[in-house]
Amino acid sequence: MNYRIDRIILILFLMFTGAVAFVPYLVQSEYQLRVVTVVVLWVGIAGCWNMMSGYTGYIDFGPVVYFGIGSYVVAIAMTKYSVPFFPSLFLSGCISAFVAFLVGIPTLRLRGAYFAIATFAFAEAMKQITLEFDRTFNVSFFQGSDGITLPISNYENSFFFYCILPVTFLVVFTHYFIEHSKFGYALKAIKEAESAAEISGVNTTANKLVAYVMSAFFLGLFGAIEAYWITYITPSDVFNVQKTVQMVIMTLLGGMGTFLGPVVGATFLTLISETLGAQFVEYYLIMIGAIIIVAILIMPSGIIGGLKIRKKLRFI
């Protein structure tokens, strides 16, 4: 029975994505388009965190590092080696994924808080490396705190919207795949009782690594697209820990380890900060803080998480 609901939700989701694709033709101003683009971007970014931490329960406090790596790869490839945007974009995803693979092998053996600390430390370390590398070795590569200016494109906002939308779609669709596969069961088993997963024959390290690398790949893509969109990056911007915090909060608000959790959480949070930010310039952060606290108190397992429990839905 639930499978039928799942199917319906998937179809609705596909239709919704299709509808969103027409947004650039419907908006009245560039501002509205930008807001929608940011929402879609954050749905994807929060989804990346959910893919790893939501399903496995391994709290990653440094996902921003792969976003930052993606930004820097695209910036360096385009400015230093004059690689066109799309190949650079692909390269960003691959290099992020590769770094995640190398980092994941030792860190994914750590459990609980140790994993969180290790990932957090790695993200901060990467920020310092990009800041200090050039000065230390007397080269001009990462360009330290000066940042890198990417080639200014003639593309309009709608171009970036259409870059981000398919990646976000892939991220959410990957969630669907996770929910309906053996891989997803393995991840959930790891979250609930890792040792019991092992004795069921789950290669826990390999499964966690796949989730981690996948999430890093997509984060790299998002980092690259945003870098090209903003056209100027600095280490403290792209490796900003605030991005991590935002991913976590959005996912928690929507519901960890659920398919639609990051979609709802990211949309909700981005929209309220936009609307409140426009009207109450000085107080809006306080208001958002209060809203988050109230939301978590009322719905400890998130908007979708709570719905899932109440309606006994398996999948959303």
């Binding site: 009782a193 019991a196 092992e198 024959g201 789950v202």
Partner: peptide, 23 residues
């Protein structure tokens, strides 16, 4: 490691059962 010994045909009922509580 356990995930491989299981494939060889042995398994364990761990102390305190350790069932997957959310499944």
């Amino acid at each position: 490691p356990p995930e491989d010994t299981v494939k060889l045909g042995m398994t364990i009922v761990p102390e305190g059962a350790r069932v997957f509580t959310e499944m």
